[in-house]
């Protein structure tokens, strides 16, 4: 049972200042721990792991951990990750995004990454709020919740990340919580190991910006809320509709075995470049076709 924290220390950047910037009791540190343990359990070397983070509190995680790390622009982590994965499919590319990152400004990138099934693992740290910018409502803020920009209560409905990712075609969809860490370790490791696009929504508390305004004064209050309301999927499914209330299921939601885009592309390339295959006149056909189709079809230029 030992070696949990010391193991984490081995993966932290020793030239980076600790403690990290997160508030006391922020779940992001726990996610970082789970991520490190998962990578360690998979036996991956630090060099083959690339962490791509967006903007927001979650984006800051990248700087602390001794992998290849890229801290990108707001909402765009998955686009950078797609480029990195396609450029070097041997890398294990893991994106860390917040709910604002992944569901609002980067929502389009999320559904397309899922659709094209790029071999990237997406961790969506859902704390129901824009934490770093001061507590404005996000696309996952529950209806009725009070935030800086919904002082009279949120009227809009919240996104269900898991359902959205599944509908968009993700190869693997999981939800974990920062309280149920053993399960989280397992989910994250599975999501990293499997082919194609795998997403883990992680319920993580932000008492500073969300809890404070919504009856959860401290980090402990928020963890109690998570402990009570995150129930394993099997149990949740067995609950009568009336008893579900605020509860949300955690566990495995989708597991498909489609090949990742980078794998399909590699196979295509191998086929096209097989020795003995006649080299087609490359430049002509496509350009010619393009010109013709432009003339014949009613292609609306953007």
């Amino acid at each position: 049972m030992a070696d949990i924290t010391e193991l984490i220390h081995d993966y932290l950047r020793h030239n980076k200042k600790f403690p990290h910037v997160f508030c006391a009791g922020c779940g992001h540190g726990i996610v970082l721990g789970a991520l490190i343990r998962s990578i360690h359990a998979l036996g991956l070397s630090k060099d083959e792991v690339c962490i791509v983070a967006g903007i927001g509190c979650s984006g800051r995680i990248a700087a602390y951990v001794d992998f290849n790390t890229v801290h990108t622009t707001h909402g765009r982590a998955l686009t950078f990750a797609t480029g990195i994965k396609m450029a070097n499919p041997k890398l294990k590319v893991i994106t860390i995004m917040g709910d604002g990152d992944a569901m609002s400004i980067g929502g389009n990138h999320l559904i397309h990454a899922a659709r094209r099934n790029i071999g990237v693992t997406a961790l969506v740290l859902n704390n129901n709020i824009y934490g770093m910018t001061g507590g404005q409502c996000s696309a996952t803020t529950p209806q009725g919740a009070t935030t800086q920009t919904t002082p009279f209560g949120q009227m809009e409905k919240a996104f269900d990340i898991v359902t959205l990712a599944a509908a968009a075609g993700a190869n693997g969809v999981y939800r974990g919580s920062t309280f149920h860490v053993n399960m989280l370790d397992r989910l994250v490791a599975t999501a990293i190991e499997r082919p194609g696009f795998n997403l883990v929504e992680i319920i993580t508390p932000c008492h500073t910006q969300y809890g404070r305004k919504n009856k959860y004064k401290s980090a402990v209050d928020m963890f109690k809320w998570i402990k009570k309301n995150c129930v394993p999927k099997e149990k949740f499914d067995a609950l009568p509709e009336a008893d579900r209330g605020e509860k949300m299921p955690i566990g495995t939601f989708v597991e498909k075995d489609h090949k990742g885009l980078e794998q399909l592309y590699g196979e295509l390339q191998a086929r096209l470049n097989r020795p003995g295959r006649p080299v087609a006149e490359p430049e002509q056909p496509s350009a010619q076709h393009a010109e013709e189709s432009r003339n014949i079809m009613n292609k609306e230029p953007k």
């Binding site: 990108t72 686009t79 950078f80 480029g83 396609m86 890398l91 990138h109």
Partner: peptide, 23 residues
């Protein structure tokens, strides 16, 4: 050689930056 059509121009820039970082 890698070719990929992205979902928009924002994503295209992101992808080529990522690829350039990957060498």
């Amino acid at each position: 050689g890698v070719f990929i059509q992205m979902e928009d121009e924002i994503a295209s820039m992101g992808a080529i930056i990522g690829a350039s970082l990957a060498g």
